[in-house]
Design a protein around this nucleic acid. Sequence first.
DNA 1: CTTGACCTTCCCGGCACTGGAAGCCCCATA
DNA 2: TATGGGGCTTCCAGTGCCGGGAAGGTCAAG
Lengths: 135, 135
Amino acid sequence: MNIGTVAKRSGVPAKTIRYYESIGLIASAGRSANGYRVYTSEEVETLRFVSHARSLGFAVKDVANLLTLWRDRSRASADVKALARGHIAEIDAKIAELRNIRETLVDLVQRCHGDDRPDCPILDSLATSSTEHRT
Amino acid sequence: MNIGTVAKRSGVPAKTIRYYESIGLIASAGRSANGYRVYTSEEVETLRFVSHARSLGFAVKDVANLLTLWRDRSRASADVKALARGHIAEIDAKIAELRNIRETLVDLVQRCHGDDRPDCPILDSLATSSTEHRT
DNA sequence: CTTGACCTTCCCGGCACTGGAAGCCCCATA
DNA sequence: TATGGGGCTTCCAGTGCCGGGAAGGTCAAG
């Protein structure tokens, strides 16, 4: 299998596959006589795994850990769970942050009449207040 | 005023001030005889504005637009409002995405017993399913 | 034989900074 | 007066995660 086929089957663009190889997230692919990378269906599975993990927002480093755990038949599921829990915590923090920002913005937008006049509470607020959204 | 003082008063690190100057977000500062950047309190205000806008998650390009609008005495507040509304929409999209991810993860974590045994629905799911969270 | 689709490597750009190195400048203190 | 410690300058490089595109080799079909 060449890289293009793998890209289609795994959902990971060829460029990204080469990138993952370059940073050591996946092993170096074998090469055929002409220098092309050659893949087995096992590697497609690995890339699918990576793709899924990435789409759940795991950082590439976390994906590396997940891959290790995945391949380790004697792993403890507790380790995986801890990793996932940590990730949920990060996501919660991000959501909270975004919600705060959103609230502030909605408030400002509501107070801005939004017509031809230059008077604008949004700009006023940016200029003066400390945009304190409680953390 | 030297850059260090401005950094303290505006909350923007000196490195970042120089960076903002280099990308043209703020105007080039004046220089004193020894080559140091010299600032007025007006520039501190500008940097405060920038800092607030950034902390509300506006991209640097958006901040550039906001700065222009801020300085334009004849601006229409509708323009500002539109920019802010667009930003809220982006934030909403991000929150929705994160919530979907979170839901999936919470579900997986709940189904993982998380002990010494290797059996783990989280890894299983990453390996097989398409981690479809509805968009 | 040519075309076009594939593959290779390499380097750049983008986001928004941040760290660090090398080298001035200025002031206070021993 | 020497010295030490900040602060300032520039420039380069790295972060995370790729995507674009150039220059060139390869392969199957028409």
